[in-house]
């Protein structure tokens, strides 16, 4: 794995529904993503985890510029995506794609699978009919579906097969960077394993870079090289997957990991229970955004927003106490 950066977000912020003006009054809006710095390296899988509403899907869409950021920039292969013209953006779209949770929702029910995969070639004006058909067959081979699938309709397939179709569609233009947004979350475990293995095989075969967004922590650990943890619109920790799961540094990461159901009934588990509910993204707490639920909070946490800083093992953590090493030692198996 090289450390060449494919895509990078700097100070990325997305505010939904805010308004201000002479007659409209003022409303701050929902800060869904609030100052995200994130770099995805060539050939890696970066997992992005967090609970509902933390902004992980919005981050994925901002990176692809499917939605416009309020502030901040996204650099794709060194170029600022937010400054590209429409034509340039369209060209860069060939190189970056997204796989959704529910391919059924993104597949036209009246379009054959072959046409759905070939749609990307038509839109981008690539090839003639015969070469497109050949490409469709190649894509079906790639996702391990029979060529006969091309003439059939989405409803004729099982959930796992539909996700294979979704993957074929996303990869049709041979992108280098793919956002997997809860790509296996709707699948049963036995089918989920098939799709995870397929995504890993395709990554090797096509040298893909993934941003793997999921709420399922075990799946993220399995597939990711590095994992970023998101809370209330901000990245609070990034580390190598094994290091993060073995030794989470941020108090939120600790609580999150200790809440994963155990893998065996005899496993002892020390729960790091969180107090209170997730604050609303309309009213993010002053200082550290986790302060209202953190069992280790101090006075400075209420006033100073901790930056995402580097620890000795190269992980990044946004916590004052993790930064100066005054957090108690984490024990998952008490």
């Amino acid at each position: 794995m090289t450390s060449e950066t494919v895509i990078e977000a700097r100070g990325l912020t997305k505010v939904f529904g805010g308004r201000s003006g002479i007659f409209k009054g003022h409303s701050a809006g929902t800060r869904a993503v609030d100052g995200v710095d994130l770099a995805v390296r060539l050939g890696e899988t970066l997992g992005l985890v967090g609970e509902s509403g933390c902004g992980k899907s919005t981050t994925g869409r901002l990176l692809l510029r499917l939605i416009e950021p309020t502030t901040g920039s996204v650099f794709f292969n060194g170029r600022d995506l937010t400054e590209l013209s429409k034509a340039e953006l369209r060209r860069s779209r060939r190189e970056m794609q997204i796989i959704f949770q529910d391919p059924y929702g993104s597949l036209n029910p009246r379009m054959t699978v072959g046409d759905a995969i070939a749609e990307a070639y038509v839109i981008h004006g690539i090839g003639d009919y015969a070469t497109r058909q050949r490409s469709v067959r190649e894509m079906l081979d790639l996702v391990r579906l029979p060529h006969s699938a091309a003439a059939r309709y989405p409803h004729e397939f099982s959930g796992g097969q539909r996700q294979r179709i979704g993957i074929a569609r996303a990869l049709a233009l041979r992108p280098g960077f793919v956002v997997c947004d809860e790509a296996v979350s709707a699948l049963d475990v036995s089918v989920q394993a098939q799709i995870i293995n397929l995504l890993q095989d395709l990554q090797r075969e096509l040298n893909l870079t993934y941003l793997f967004i999921s709420h399922n922590l075990s799946v993220v650990r399995h597939i990711s090289d590095r994992v970023a943890v998101m809370y209330l619109g901000r990245i609070v920790e990034i580390a190598k997957a094994d290091a993060l799961f073995a030794n989470p540094a941020h108090p939120y990461t600790r609580a999150l990991l200790s809440a994963i159901p155990r893998s065996h009934p005899d496993e002892l588990r020390h729960r790091h229970q969180l107090s209170g509910d997730l604050p609303s993204a309309l009213a993010i707490p002053q200082g550290c955004r986790f302060v209202s639920r953190c069992p280790f909070s101090q006075e400075r946490c209420r006033t100073i927003d901790p930056p995402l800083g580097s620890l000795s093992d190269h992980r990044l953590v946004a916590c004052h106490r993790a930064a100066d090493g005054t957090l108690p030692v984490f024990e998952l198996n008490a």
Partner: peptide, 21 residues
């Protein structure tokens, strides 16, 4: 079914799958 679940610790081998649906 048990073998097809990703784990939160230990080695990360290839997942066991159940073919078909």
């Amino acid at each position: 079914l048990l073998a097809s679940i990703p784990q939160t610790k230990g080695p990360r081998g290839r997942l066991v799958t159940i073919e078909g649906a």
